[in-house]
Amino acid sequence: MPNLADSGLVTAVRTGLAELADPAKAPEMQRYMKSLMPFRGVQKPARKELATRLFAAHLLSDVNTWTATVLELWRGAEYREERYLAVDLTDFRPYRRWQQPGLLPLYEELIVTGAWWDLVDEVANRRIGPLVRAYPAELAPVMRAWSRDRNRWKRRTSIICQLGSKDDTDVALLSDCVEANVDHPDFFLRKGIGWALREFAKTEPGWVRSFVAAHPGLSPLSRREALKHL
């Protein structure tokens, strides 16, 4: 099967990051993120400027080329910033019209192989979340399945994918995904539960108070985070 990735964009991203590299910053960035993959030492503002410039200069013609290019950047990454730009490419404005349930396998790969909060949370909140809101019949059952998956990052995604939903929150889905993980010992799931409930408390504080009161099995961390501003 031919590789549909835009090699010009892939090369431009890797070359651009190499030119911006700061070897003095790279080790500290890697330590902070507890990353096995090394960093170039390119901080977020410079990465964002590079992404905007290169993505605009290398516009992709169709969804298959776009998807293949994202995966080429992701799978072939030698530095973590390449993965950050791969995630950025999934949200570049000209391609937002391609956001459909059929992209779920792409995002699932980024979540499972990214396997750390800096990569997973962006995909969960800003890619999966809008799809859940736009296509609830198709994706709510998937999130319920993910909430019980063996992979903790898929579980975390199911819990936090509605962070920005406000009045559009599927309350039954939020409740189901949290309840599936109430007793789970994993820190990232407990923190995710507290985060999701704390954000929803900005919209429905009474519901969150009642939910927390009705679930004494919530970890102290989840409970504390959920009620932080109430």
Rank of each mutant, 00 (worst) to 15 (best):
S7T: 15
G8H: 12
G8D: 12
A12Y: 11
V13T: 01
G16W: 06
G16V: 06
L17D: 09
L17A: 09
L20P: 00
L20M: 09
L20D: 08
A21N: 10
A21P: 06
K25P: 02
K25A: 15
A26E: 10
E28Y: 12
M29Y: 02
Q30L: 11
Q30S: 10
R31F: 09
Y32I: 13
S35W: 01
L36T: 13
M37Q: 14
F39A: 08
V42T: 08
A46V: 03
T52N: 13
T52E: 14
H58G: 08
H58E: 05
L59R: 15
L59F: 00
S61Q: 13
D62Q: 12
V63F: 00
T65N: 01
W66N: 10
W66C: 11
A68Y: 05
L71C: 00
R75E: 14
Y79A: 11
E82A: 01
R83T: 03
Y84V: 11
Y84F: 15
L85V: 02
A86V: 03
D88N: 09
D91Y: 00
F92H: 15
F92V: 00
P101R: 07
G102R: 12
L103A: 00
L104A: 02
E108Q: 15
E108L: 11
E109W: 10
E109Q: 14
E109Y: 09
V112G: 06
T113Q: 14
G114V: 04
W116Y: 04
W116E: 09
L119F: 13
D121A: 05
D121M: 07
D121K: 08
D121R: 03
R126K: 13
I128S: 06
P130C: 08
P130S: 08
V132D: 02
A134D: 14
E138V: 13
E138R: 13
E138C: 00
L139D: 03
V142H: 00
M143T: 07
W146E: 03
R148M: 11
R148F: 04
R148Y: 04
R148S: 13
R148T: 15
D149Y: 04
D149C: 11
R150H: 11
N151C: 10
N151Q: 12
R152I: 13
W153L: 02
W153R: 05
K154N: 04
S158M: 03
I159H: 01
I160R: 00
I160D: 03
C161V: 07
C161S: 13
D168L: 08
T169Q: 02
D170C: 06
V171A: 06
V171C: 10
A172G: 12
A172M: 01
L173W: 00
L173D: 04
S175H: 03
S175Y: 03
D176N: 00
C177G: 01
A180T: 01
H184T: 11
F188M: 14
F188A: 07
F188Y: 15
L189P: 06
L189G: 02
L189I: 15
L189K: 03
W195A: 01
L197Y: 08
R198H: 10
R198E: 05
A201V: 05
A201W: 02
P205A: 05
P205D: 09
G206M: 05
V208W: 05
S210M: 04
F211R: 01
F211P: 03
V212M: 11
V212D: 05
A213P: 02
A213D: 14
A214C: 04
A214G: 14
H215R: 15
P220V: 07
R223L: 02
E225R: 09
H229I: 02
